[in-house]
């Protein structure tokens, strides 16, 4: 098994956190993982993306030629990466702010209005975690329990207050796919 995923969006959308949380939870489950970030010099704005590889054997290259999954949080990311996704792959789209849809019919498209859903929860910053809920539900690489536990340990004690809303956000994304 080898799953390579590119997460991409604006800097500040928590795109790197999505990748780090997936990589950590997969590591905690005992998989081989690599996490490779690429971002501009800006703190916010600009672009950010990262590539996460999860495998049950040693990972040769941390760079993805043809990722099986793509998670895009803004429109430029969809344009940049949609044609890299392998045939039969899956593209997750933040449909709250992306009106476009992929120009391919050989991939599965999953639209999650995660920014709107985050607003309903009262904090737009958890849009990324809502998307992760949908991602974990669809891909089933790790259990929700392992994911949430890993997420809390990455966030650390400073952000304990966020743990509760993160859990709600994750559940919202997870259930969005179930329905």
């Amino acid at each position: 098994m080898l799953v390579k995923t590119i997460f991409s969006g604006f800097g500040g959308q928590g795109v790197l956190m999505m990748g780090i949380s997936l990589a950590n939870s997969a590591m905690n489950k005992g998989y081989h993982v690599t996490y490779l970030p690429a971002y501009g010099a800006e703190m916010r704005g600009g672009t950010a993306n990262c590539t996460v590889a999860v495998s049950d054997e040693e990972i040769a290259s941390p760079i993805a030629s043809e990722p099986g999954c793509l998670v895009v949080m803004n429109s430029p990311s969809l344009l940049t990466f949609q044609n890299k996704v392998s045939e039969g792959g899956t593209i997750f789209i933040n449909s709250s702010i992306i009106d476009m849809r992929p120009n391919r019919n050989d991939v599965k498209t999953i639209c999650v209005p995660c920014t709107d859903m985050a607003q309903e929860l009262g904090n737009t910053r958890v849009a990324n975690i809502i998307m992760m809920g949908a991602f974990i539900r669809e891909l089933n690489v790790v259990s929700p329990e392992i994911y949430l536990k890993s997420l809390e340990s990455i966030m650390g004690s400073r952000k304990k207050a966020l743990a509760e809303i993160n859990r709600k956000a994750f559940a919202a994304g997870f259930d969005y796919i179930k329905d």
């Binding site: 780090i20 990589a23 590591m27 081989h32 993982v33 690599t34 996490y35 490779l36 970030p37 941390p62 760079i63």
Partner: peptide, 9 residues
């Protein structure tokens, strides 16, 4: 830069 910023267990 890739070796420096890449994460692995």
């Amino acid at each position: 830069g890739m070796m420096g910023q890449m994460m692995e267990p």
